[in-house]
Write a protein that binds this DNA or RNA. Structure first.
Length: 425
RNA sequence: GAGCCUGUAGCUCAACGGCAGAGCGCCACACUGUGGAUGUGGAUGUUGAGGGUUCGAAACCCUUCAGGCUCCCCA
């Protein structure tokens, strides 16, 4: 007995239905990106580990990446993110590219983590970035791309919201609270955790990090102040631009959004599903002003975000927003009446295909009832039958499964009739 | 890397030491040249895998794999 080989933990098999969703997301992110003039690109799926070690915490890279030695003895890894590859690609052609550069990508990534709801070890991610400009208007554009995408998959602003904050603003507030610079990382983490912990525990944790009571009270005031954005010129301009771009209702200021990522310097944002079971961010990003220097380029600032397909898929599924799955790409089925007429049906189907139609044939003689049932299951819209009566008179029977009407027409007229029916409905 | 929960028919689940079941789906027929509806009948399981306890294990114990929920992390 052959032993069953399982899939690698955390990887995914895309049956046609899942593949359809993946392609649907690919289509929608592409439409949103192109509508703002972004070009598609991609990087290698395998990268030297050093590309990530340069910028990210080394432990993180070693523990949470699929890393291995290639046959030449070099340490390589399945890419856990795209931004470093992007930074290198931009840096390599920095002199010849025209800025601002607007690029997007949708491809596979791997992270060696514990699979949970909304998190797998293999996933697809949309990355979109604008490089070479540092302005709140550029930040607003990226947020608008995200909002337009959410709208295009029929998530309304009550269901999905993009929460925005600004690192520079928060730094100014931390300055005012006299929080020393070496504590900033810890405080960022603290803020990130606030929604996950009970208030009393969070307070205790904050004091444990050596904040004094005055600082803690000040921090809570800051995090509860939804008008804080008015103190930031960048955010004032950002929100004004979002209004002009027609996406204001998707965006809210939230001083609790920090993002753990080291390289963000200004605007940061994350989108969440407000009502579903997934507490993870749908998408997240921000402005990074120093990234290119890390890979040997001249200083160049950028803004961008990433969105994973796993959380997005769960959100759409929970809200009943998945696109309808059609089991067959062929809307037309030509039946096989019996063994003597197989070739006639196949020849007719070939004619339809040559005219550009997608056509399904039953691959062996079977009862017509069975073939019609099959057509119904495949969600075909038209069934063409070529039986002895029709052949004798040079006719074909064309049935519209949507309204159950069947007409018999001359064989030569069938193609136009079918095209008309398909175009009509 | 740590803790807890769950794996039973294709799917959703029941049986909780004593003959492995239901609904849905599937197949056939009613309807031998026509889908969705209805009715009747039918098939389907090494109870995730491996070991142990027991007269007897889907159930109890151990190991392992997979999934889920937390912690951690989330580039």
């Amino acid at each position: 007995m052959a032993s069953k080989i399982n899939t690698v933990k955390g990887t995914r098999e895309f049956y046609p239905e899942e593949m359809a969703l993946r392609n649907y997301l690919y289509e929608k992110v592409g439409v949103a990106a192109r509508s703002f003039g972004y070009q598609e690109y991609d990087g290698p799926f395998i990268e030297p580990i050093d590309l990530y070690a340069a910028k990210s915490g080394e432990e993180l890279v070693k523990k949470q990446s699929f890393t291995f030695e290639d046959r030449g003895g070099d340490l390589v890894t399945l890419r856990p993110e795209l931004t470093p590859s992007l930074a290198r690609m931009i840096a390599a052609k920095q002199g010849e590219l025209t800025f601002p550069a607007r690029w997007w990508s949708f491809g596979p990534f791997w992270r060696y983590e514990q699979p949970q709801k909304g998190r797998t070890r293999e996933f697809f991610q949309w990355n979109i970035d604008m490089l070479g400009v540092s302005s709140p208007e550029a930040d607003a554009e990226l947020i608008a791309v995200g909002a337009n995408f959410l709208r295009s998959v029929r998530l309304d602003p009550q269901q999905a919201t993009i929460y925005v904050n600004n690192r520079r603003l928060m730094d100014a507030e931390f300055d005012a609270l006299k929080i020393p610079s070496e504590k900033r990382m810890d405080v960022s983490n603290l803020v990130d955790r606030r929604t996950k912990m009970e208030p009393a525990k969070w307070d205790a944790y904050a004091l444990e990090l050596a904040l004094d009571q005055t600082q803690l009270n000040g921090l809570k005031d800051v995090l509860g102040n939804l008008d804080l954005w008015k103190k930031s010129d960048e955010l004032v301009r950002l929100f004004a631009t979002l209004e002009a771009l027609g996406v204001k209702e998707y965006v809210k200021f939230d001083p609790n959004i920090m993002r753990g990522i080291l390289y963000y310097t200004g605007t940061v944002f994350e989108a969440f599903d407000n009502s579903g079971s997934v507490k993870r961010a749908i998408l997240g990003g921000g402005r990074y002003d120093n990234l290119l220097e890390d890979v040997g380029g001249q200083p160049l600032s950028g803004v961008g975000f990433a969105m994973g397909d796993v959380v997005m898929g769960i959100v759409l599924q929970e809200k009943g927003l998945l696109p309808e799955f059609i089991p067959s790409p062929a809307p037309v089925l030509v039946t096989i009446f019996d063994e003597t007429l197989i070739r006639d049906s196949y020849a007719l189907a070939a004619e339809f295909r040559n005219a550009g139609l997608n056509v399904l044939c039953y691959p062996e003689p079977a009862k017509l009832q069975k073939q019609f049932k099959f057509a119904d299951k495949m969600k075909a819209r038209i069934v063409v039958t070529l039986g002895p009566d029709e052949v004798a008179k040079g006719l074909v029977a064309v049935k519209n499964l949507v309204n159950s009407e069947q007409v018999t027409v001359k064989r030569d007229a069938a193609l136009e009739l079918i095209k008309g029916l398909l175009a009509g409905a």
